[in-house]
């Protein structure tokens, strides 16, 4: 009986092995795809309403991804490739706006606002406390 089970197991197992192949990555260079993915997630698809180059099915997005692949294989650095795209489409393609004069308020404004807010709150709280002498309210 035991032998039979083993036999059946071996048979079904062999059967499974014979038919089931290991799924292969769609690309022959998965490492490059990972790099492409990371990069294209920060780039904007130009023809779409608002989506990244990574997530777009638009033909131009496909072309640009292929262009990026080609340049990556040619040994270009990420920065060089982004510069290449910016030279053609402008800063519009970058979802991470570069830090420069135009975007200074964008990048630093929020933190300035937080500091100002904190400072103003402190001043107002001082005023609210007035002369102090406050007892905690027990719960």
């Amino acid at each position: 009986m035991k032998k039979l089970i083993i036999l059946i197991f071996l048979f079904t197992h062999a059967f499974a092995v014979a038919y089931a192949g290991e799924a292969k990555p769609i690309s022959d260079d998965p490492a490059l795809e990972v790099r492409l993915k990371a990069m294209s997630q920060e780039l904007r698809c130009l023809v779409c309403q608002n989506s990244t180059l990574a997530d777009s099915d638009a033909p131009l997005a496909e072309d640009l991804r292929n262009e990026i692949r080609t340049q990556m294989r040619a040994g270009k650095s990420d920065q060089e490739i982004v510069d290449y795209l910016v030279a053609r489409y402008g800063d519009f393609v970058r979802y991470r706006p570069p830090m420069n004069n135009v975007t200074a308020i964008l990048w630093f404004g929020p933190f300035l606002l937080l500091l100002t807010g904190g400072f103003v709150l402190y001043r107002v709280l001082k005023k609210q406390a007035r002369d102090g002498d406050i007892q905690a309210e027990e719960e």
Binding site: E42, G90, D91, Y95, P97, V102, L106
Partner: peptide, 8 residues
């Protein structure tokens, strides 16, 4: 034209 997206 600039874009401000998820990374920002």
């Amino acid at each position: 034209k600039i874009s401000v997206g998820p990374p920002y």
